[in-house]
Amino acid sequence: MELTCLAVDDEPLALDLMRSYISKVPYLRLLQTCSSALEAMSVLRNQQVDVLFLDIEMPDLTGIQLLQAMGPQKPAVIFTTAYPQYALDGFTLDAVDYLLKPIPFERFLKAVNKVHDWAQLLAPQVTLQPGQHGANGKESEDFIFVKADYKTLRINFKDILLIEGLKDYVIIHTPAKKIITLLSMGKIMEKLPEHTFARVHRSYIVSLPHIESIEKSRIKIKDQEIPIGDSYREEFMRWVESKNL
């Protein structure tokens, strides 16, 4: 799995070191280096960045301020700084690691391996099941990993009853519990097999095999009633009609 990188530092020698270190790691690809946080903001708006190597003490805008300005969908951040006093701030802002200059390559490698392992863990695991395909024509998946309660949880598709959207989060309903994770409805829908799940409302995705009944504009699954949104009704009812005897 390749990870794209952006290095931000106002010291040219520090950027040279990041270029050298990144070039030594096969799964890292350097997109660009920036000498200021303001320059980095422009890059982040226009390019997909997986890992951000970020200095803290920079003119005009600090690395901490740049991270605070980012939305929830931000890259993995590894701080690279000469100032240990910002470590608590960095981890409060969910930085993956905090590297103190001068940075040994072994310490750099440990930090990027952490990001790489995490990315692989969150990538959906595929099991080959001939004849079943997901939304993008790929072989369907048996499960996904999601981050919740400071853990990474495996959730089998067959255990999902429905998924409820709540602003920037989704609530995954299973028979045993509800799992809340930071994820958009559109993003999780991309990971679900289309033959098993359907979006029936702006705020709801349902597991088709778990539907117990459909009445007027409501779907019943266990003790939950899910509304069918106007913009989703036609497609969903076509699926219902295809199952009618």
Rank of each mutant, 00 (worst) to 15 (best):
S203G: 12
V112E: 12
L161R: 11
L182S: 10
F108V: 11
M1C: 08
H133I: 04
P84H: 11
C34E: 15
A37Y: 05
P84E: 14
V112C: 13
D50R: 05
F197N: 03
T80K: 07
A135T: 10
M58C: 06
Y21H: 03
G186P: 00
G137T: 07
D50Q: 08
E164M: 09
F53C: 05
N113R: 14
K24Q: 12
L52M: 08
A87W: 10
L30R: 01
P175I: 00
A82K: 09
R45Y: 05
E190K: 15
T127N: 05
Q68L: 14
E11D: 13
A176P: 03
A111I: 09
R154A: 06
A82S: 15
S207I: 10
S140M: 09
Q129S: 04
P193G: 07
K74F: 03
K177V: 04
Q129L: 05
K178S: 08
P102R: 04
I163M: 15
E39G: 13
E141C: 09
S36Q: 06
L30K: 01
L38W: 02
D55F: 13
E234N: 13
V43Y: 10
D55E: 14
P130D: 07
L38Q: 10
I228A: 12
I221E: 06
L161H: 12
N244A: 03
D230I: 15
K222G: 08
D16L: 08
I226H: 06
L109I: 00
H195D: 13
K24W: 04
N136E: 00
W239R: 00
Q132T: 11
H133F: 02
Y21G: 02
A37Q: 07
I214P: 06
L121G: 10
L44N: 00
I211M: 10
E190F: 01
D223F: 02
P124A: 04
Y86P: 10
T127W: 01
K167L: 14
M189L: 10
K187M: 11
G186S: 12
